[in-house]
Simulated assay, not measured.
Amino acid sequence: MAADRDSRRETAWRLLRDLIGQSGIRLSNRCPRCGGDHGPVELEGAAVTASVSYAAEWAVVALAPAEAGSVGVDAEPEVDTRRDRAGLDGVLGAGSASARDWVRVEAALKADRRGLRIEPGAVHILGGTGTDQGAGASWRARVPGRADAVLGWDLTGPPGILVSAALARIESADA
């Protein structure tokens, strides 16, 4: 848990280094579009992929072996008065959406590595509906421009925080 943006980022970076457990790792998250420090996590010197998300005062990280694919994680408060007042209708295409829908889509887009350069409403989540929602549910996401589905899971997060993680196979340039 961390208090502000800078300390959440420091907490996330420390968690990643501790979980990887090897020296000489360089972390960065330069945005491919604007160059800011909010892009996908890049690890130099480690055979893993990583993703970071922030929700309220929490920093959430996910790791996967590089050969498994690219990992994405998203976390959002279950209750956010500003978000809930504005609603998520139309955010993920026609109709209504929930915070759980959003964390799934964003985790899939992070795993895809193109993030919000892909229209979130164009992502289709399959499975994980009805009684199959919440921590432990598995789902798949169809992301425009990908030949294969992104695999996803809803995870147990800190109290009041929804967390989903996704794994995307690395597609070759000829795919």
Results as ranks from 00 to 15, higher is better:
1 M>E: 11
5 R>S: 05
5 R>D: 10
7 S>V: 01
8 R>G: 05
10 E>P: 09
12 A>F: 04
12 A>N: 03
13 W>T: 01
14 R>N: 01
19 L>D: 14
22 Q>W: 01
23 S>Y: 03
24 G>F: 03
25 I>L: 05
26 R>V: 15
26 R>P: 10
27 L>N: 06
27 L>E: 05
29 N>G: 01
30 R>I: 14
32 P>R: 14
32 P>M: 03
33 R>S: 13
35 G>M: 10
36 G>M: 12
36 G>T: 13
37 D>K: 13
37 D>F: 04
39 G>F: 12
39 G>M: 10
39 G>W: 15
41 V>P: 05
43 L>Q: 09
45 G>D: 13
46 A>N: 11
50 A>G: 08
50 A>S: 07
53 S>L: 03
54 Y>Q: 14
55 A>R: 07
56 A>C: 01
56 A>R: 08
58 W>F: 09
58 W>K: 05
60 V>Y: 02
61 V>M: 04
62 A>K: 11
69 G>E: 03
72 G>C: 05
72 G>W: 09
74 D>P: 01
75 A>C: 11
75 A>H: 09
78 E>C: 01
79 V>F: 06
79 V>D: 10
81 T>G: 15
81 T>N: 15
81 T>E: 15
83 R>E: 00
83 R>S: 01
84 D>Y: 00
85 R>F: 11
87 G>M: 02
88 L>A: 00
90 G>E: 08
90 G>I: 02
94 A>H: 12
95 G>E: 07
95 G>D: 06
96 S>W: 00
97 A>Y: 00
99 A>C: 05
101 D>E: 01
107 A>P: 15
107 A>D: 11
108 A>H: 11
108 A>R: 04
109 L>E: 02
110 K>P: 12
111 A>N: 07
111 A>D: 08
112 D>A: 07
116 L>T: 02
118 I>F: 15
119 E>H: 14
120 P>I: 00
121 G>H: 07
122 A>R: 15
122 A>F: 04
124 H>E: 14
125 I>C: 09
127 G>T: 08
129 T>S: 15
130 G>S: 13
131 T>N: 13
132 D>Y: 12
133 Q>S: 14
136 G>L: 10
136 G>Q: 08
139 W>D: 03
140 R>K: 11
143 V>I: 04
143 V>Q: 06
149 A>E: 13
149 A>Q: 10
149 A>I: 02
149 A>K: 05
152 G>R: 01
156 T>M: 10
157 G>S: 06
157 G>M: 02
157 G>R: 02
159 P>V: 05
159 P>M: 01
160 G>F: 04
161 I>M: 02
161 I>G: 03
164 S>E: 13
164 S>H: 11
165 A>H: 05
167 L>T: 00
168 A>S: 07
168 A>C: 04
170 I>N: 06
171 E>Q: 12
173 A>I: 06
175 A>I: 00
